[in-house]
Simulated assay, not measured.
Amino acid sequence: MKAMPTEIAEVLHIVPACHQDARGHFAETYSRSALEPFGVAADFVQDNLSFSRRQGTVRGLHFQAPPYAQAKLVRCSSGSILDVAVDIRYGSPTFGAHVTRVLSAQNMHQLFVPAGFAHGFSTLSPNTEVLYKVDANYAPQCERGIRFDDPDLAIDWQLGNDPAFLSDRDRDLPKFTALPPVFMFADMTEVSECLS
């Protein structure tokens, strides 16, 4: 398993080793000991599965506020996605910048998205399934988000000229400039707690 820093060093692009023979293939999709040398110390507590029927579905940009902030390890088990992580750590030199990677069932690549980042993806093929591990339990009172198409973020979701297929909730998310300080970069202090 290889883990490589992306344009934002804390976001990691992970490539599992794939062993193939006449039967098919085998890959180790997660190994704590293999990822620890790259700074991944997340204690994953929940696995999530997202299925999207339509190509051009956009989910995001989402994050959870403290004390339920989540790191995520994302992979695509069927179809393909453009996975996106946006730095929302106030004071970070990459505040507002984003990382994108194509994750697919074929390439088996993964993205590690630490706490302090908003996350989303667009489906590049129909019938796409995304699996991701998180290191904090789902807390609906801590759910937050940013509009996927905010011009200040200028993310190319690889939709071509087609409109995104969105949930009503994602369509109504606020713009990036309306985001209050939730995470501070200096020591990754969490500055905004959600109410229980």
Rank of each mutant, 00 (worst) to 15 (best):
A3G: 07
P5W: 00
T6W: 07
T6N: 04
E7L: 14
I8W: 01
E10K: 10
L12P: 02
H13F: 10
V15G: 01
P16G: 09
A17C: 13
C18N: 11
Q20P: 04
G24H: 06
G24F: 10
H25Y: 15
H25F: 15
F26D: 09
F26H: 08
E28I: 14
E28H: 08
T29C: 13
Y30G: 09
Y30N: 09
R32V: 15
A34K: 07
P37M: 11
F38Q: 07
G39E: 07
F44T: 12
V45G: 13
Q46H: 14
L49E: 13
S50M: 13
S52F: 01
S52Y: 00
S52R: 04
R54T: 10
T57G: 03
V58M: 06
R59F: 10
G60P: 05
L61K: 04
L61T: 04
H62Y: 08
H62M: 11
A65C: 15
A65G: 03
Y68Q: 14
Q70M: 08
A71R: 01
V74S: 05
G79E: 03
I81D: 05
I81W: 03
V84R: 01
V86Q: 01
S92K: 06
S92R: 03
F95E: 02
L103A: 08
A105T: 05
N107D: 12
N107K: 06
N107L: 08
N107M: 08
N107V: 10
H109E: 15
V113G: 05
A115V: 06
G120F: 04
T123Y: 03
T123K: 01
T123I: 09
L124N: 03
L124Y: 00
P126E: 09
T128P: 04
V130Q: 00
V130C: 02
L131S: 14
Y132I: 12
Y132N: 08
K133S: 14
N137H: 13
Y138K: 06
P140W: 02
G145T: 03
R147Y: 00
R147L: 12
R147E: 03
D149A: 02
Q158F: 06
P163K: 06
F165R: 00
F165Q: 04
F165S: 10
S167W: 03
D168V: 07
R169Y: 02
R171H: 06
D172K: 09
L173I: 05
P174E: 08
L179M: 11
L179G: 03
P180M: 08
P181I: 13
P181R: 14
F183I: 11
M184N: 08
M184Q: 11
D187Q: 12
M188R: 07
T189Q: 14
E193D: 11
L195P: 00
L195S: 14
S196L: 14
S196T: 10
